[in-house]
Amino acid sequence: MVTLGNLYCGFLSVGFAATGQFKNAAILILIGMMLDSMDGRLARMLNVDSELGKQLDSLADIVTFGVAPSFLVYYTYFFQFGLLGMAIAGLFPLFGAYRLARFNISSSKTSLNYFVGVPITAAGGILAILTLFGDKIPHIFTTVVFTGMCFLMVSKIRIPSLKEIPLPKYGTIVTVFLGCILYIIYIKGTKGQFPYLIYIATPLYIAYLAYRFVKGKSKKHD
């Protein structure tokens, strides 16, 4: 269910981007990141981890962190280059799909220590954040980051896995970061910039906090 929620966030993000609500589209990608961070561990906690779930997770990642960010970048900047801009924007999900396929066939032992290339989740999230604060960031910088993320995803560069970072430290950083994003949504929502999105983000964040609390308790009892 969490994976399907992640996939739905990607679909909604594309819809918001197409109607010019770019900040809402970026926020939905970040919400998808939050759900993506929960689904695998939650499935293992509930003992419902399966091969079907892994395939659905990859499909959701392509949509939410590949297709949705590329649409977002196209509608906010690349659209002015016409078909060329659309063609360039379309490269991002292609590189991301290759990155996911390569990861899926790699050995599980390797993935515990490091990632080969930047994960599509991180790449898509970075583009979403750049778009969220696009009025303060030059478009040329976003273009450079977009191009860099495409090549870094398919590169052979070894990226240290966040699984090696102790969970309380890393989890706290992620929780605080998502809380700050939620606060921005709330502030902007009072000004009418994020209509109804606060009602979606708030319960999801509460569910994420509950998940963190339950996971922390289960680790202490192990």
Score class of each variant (00 low, 15 high):
Val2Trp: 05
Thr3Ala: 03
Asn6Leu: 03
Ser13Val: 06
Ser13Glu: 03
Ser13Gln: 03
Ser13Pro: 07
Gly15Lys: 15
Phe16Met: 06
Phe16His: 13
Ala17Leu: 10
Thr19Leu: 08
Thr19Arg: 13
Gly20His: 09
Gln21Asn: 15
Lys23Arg: 14
Ala26Tyr: 12
Leu28Pro: 02
Leu30Arg: 01
Leu35His: 01
Leu35Lys: 03
Asp36Ser: 06
Asp49Arg: 04
Asp49Tyr: 10
Ser50Asp: 08
Leu52Asn: 09
Leu52Phe: 15
Leu56Lys: 04
Leu56Asp: 02
Val63Ala: 08
Gly66Cys: 06
Val67Thr: 12
Pro69Trp: 01
Pro69Asn: 09
Ser70Tyr: 03
Phe71Lys: 02
Thr76Asn: 10
Tyr77Gly: 02
Phe81Lys: 07
Leu83Gly: 07
Leu83Phe: 13
Met86Trp: 15
Ala87Ser: 13
Ile88Gly: 03
Ala89Ile: 04
Leu91Thr: 10
Pro93Phe: 01
Gly96Tyr: 02
Tyr98Glu: 06
Arg99Trp: 11
Leu100Ala: 08
Leu100Met: 12
Leu100Trp: 04
Ser107Phe: 05
Ser108Met: 06
Lys109Asp: 09
Ser111Pro: 00
Leu112Ala: 09
Leu112Met: 11
Ile120Arg: 01
Ala123Gln: 02
Gly125Lys: 04
Ile126Thr: 14
Ile129Gln: 07
Leu130Glu: 02
Thr131Glu: 11
Asp135Glu: 15
Ile137Gly: 11
Pro138His: 06
Ile140Trp: 11
Ile140Tyr: 12
Phe141Arg: 01
Thr143Arg: 00
Met149Ile: 04
Val154Met: 00
Arg158Ala: 11
Ile159Lys: 02
Pro160His: 14
Ser161Gly: 07
Leu162Gln: 06
Leu167Asp: 09
Leu167Ile: 10
Gly171Ala: 07
Gly171Asp: 06
Val174Ser: 13
Thr175Ala: 14
Val176His: 12
Phe177Cys: 14
Leu178Gln: 12
Cys180Asn: 12
Cys180Leu: 15
Tyr183Leu: 15
Ile185Asn: 11
Tyr186Val: 13
Thr190Ser: 11
Thr190Asp: 13
Lys191Asn: 14
Pro195Gly: 09
Pro203Phe: 10
Pro203Gln: 09
Leu204His: 07
Tyr211His: 12
Arg212Gly: 11
Phe213Ser: 10
Lys217Thr: 09
Ser218Leu: 15
Ser218His: 10
Lys220Gly: 02
Asp222Asn: 12
Asp222Ala: 13
